[in-house]
Amino acid sequence: MPGTVTVVHATDAPPPRWDASLFLAGPTPRSADVPSWRPAAVDLIRRHWAGPGDLVVFVPESSTGAFTADYDDQIGWELRWLSAADQVLFWVPRDLATLPGLTTNDEWGWLKDSGRAVFGSPPDAAKVRYQREYARNHGIPLADTLDAAVRAALGRIGTGAPRADGERHVPLLVWSAPEFRHWYAAQRAAGNTLRDAGVVWTLRVSGALVYWAARVSVAIAAEGGRIKDNEVVVGRPDISAVVLYRRGATVRDTQLVLVREFRSPGCAPDGYVHEFPGGSGGFTDPARAARAELAEETGLALAPERLRAHGVRQLAATMSVHRGHVFSAEVTAGELARLTAAPGPHGSGDTERTWVETTTFGELLDGGRADWATMGMAAQVLADVDGR
């Protein structure tokens, strides 16, 4: 049996928990003789909602249908729940005389690339050519009927996920991200409470979420409930890295294999990042990702049994929740020579281009090219293989 559908009208408080949320954005009638399209949308939502949980539908109109000219409270209400909704259904039956939808243009502007927008308009709607073309060219669900728009929005929601209180402000797109789930599980295990949140931005590639940033307000249990609400949490997929080494007479003499790659945030004197081969690789198995990234960035293919795992840690705990899975393998003299003789470029064209570099741990310590995360990976691996 499908769950309930609860309609929340302008300025009304939503329920303290839900499984899914949908905001109905679009032109609002300014006079009583112009009918609203939203009651028909709510009827369609009730008909098509098949999720087992509770769906909240935000309707930015009063329950009586009356329009309030002084609506400062409504503006705040709309901005808050537009930001929180799992999906925002834009239905724009634009008529320049009766339903101009000027505010809708602004809402579409800041939400169209959020991964949470669906756009629909009837064939005779005025001044929607730009919005429709943008949606078509950027993979945003596009509909010609209200029924199709509702189906598209509910299809993206799926069955939703239970959330309560501050959790309601994390849309499904981010809530379902593995990196968010790991971060939030750690906060819950520590006894902390998510009081409020807001997704600042997301970056998607081919429809898949790659980066996200969320402003959070957390009550810290170990500090008597002190509220921390002045930071942004950034997420991206976890990485797997491979430390290739060849033992030297001392730890400082141990040879290491790095890759040099231009990454836009890099601050080294040459503008490049000098790190161990690695990346997310698109695999759920960290060891498989490690071998794939190693082959792509250095040309060296390793058998699975040659990889040694050294654990997983967060990489930049003051900002990002993503973690690094670290592996190592000792290379032969021949492999090291081949890597040195064919430094590159390797990678996948313009998006990734790497060159192999060999160095010693001592040079890595003294040179200042590698970041602290890379230094930490090297220290962990060398401590483990040295055995002392």
Rank of each mutant, 00 (worst) to 15 (best):
Y211F: 15
V312N: 07
V242Y: 06
D72P: 00
T254K: 08
L302A: 11
L365H: 01
K127V: 13
M377L: 06
G53Y: 02
R260I: 07
V218T: 09
R156K: 07
T298V: 12
G248P: 01
P162I: 08
G120R: 13
E305P: 00
P304E: 09
D12M: 09
F90Y: 11
D384R: 11
V210D: 12
R195C: 15
L364N: 04
S240Q: 07
D147E: 15
T360K: 08
G368W: 06
F58Y: 10
L173I: 15
K127L: 14
R288Q: 12
G139P: 02
D33P: 02
V170Q: 04
R163H: 01
A185C: 05
V118E: 08
W183V: 02
S121R: 08
V42Q: 04
V321K: 01
T360I: 08
L203F: 06
M377T: 00
S320A: 14
G344S: 13
R306P: 00
T104M: 08
P100I: 12
G344Q: 10
T193A: 14
L154Y: 05
G376S: 11
F283A: 15
F119E: 03
V42H: 00
G367Y: 00
T64G: 08
R353A: 08
A117M: 10
A135P: 01
T103L: 14
A117K: 04
W49G: 02
P123D: 13
C267F: 06
P15K: 05
L79E: 11
E231P: 01
V259G: 02
D386K: 04
N230D: 15
A303Y: 00
Q314L: 12
G279M: 06
W201V: 06
S206I: 02
A289C: 04
A329K: 02
P93W: 10
G160L: 12
A221W: 00
A117F: 02
A370I: 07
D386R: 07
L89N: 03
D43R: 11
T159V: 12
G271T: 05
L82M: 14
G235I: 06
E107T: 12
P29A: 12
A135E: 08
M375T: 09
R151Q: 15
N105L: 15
A135I: 11
R38D: 08
A241H: 05
R288Y: 00
S83A: 15
D196R: 07
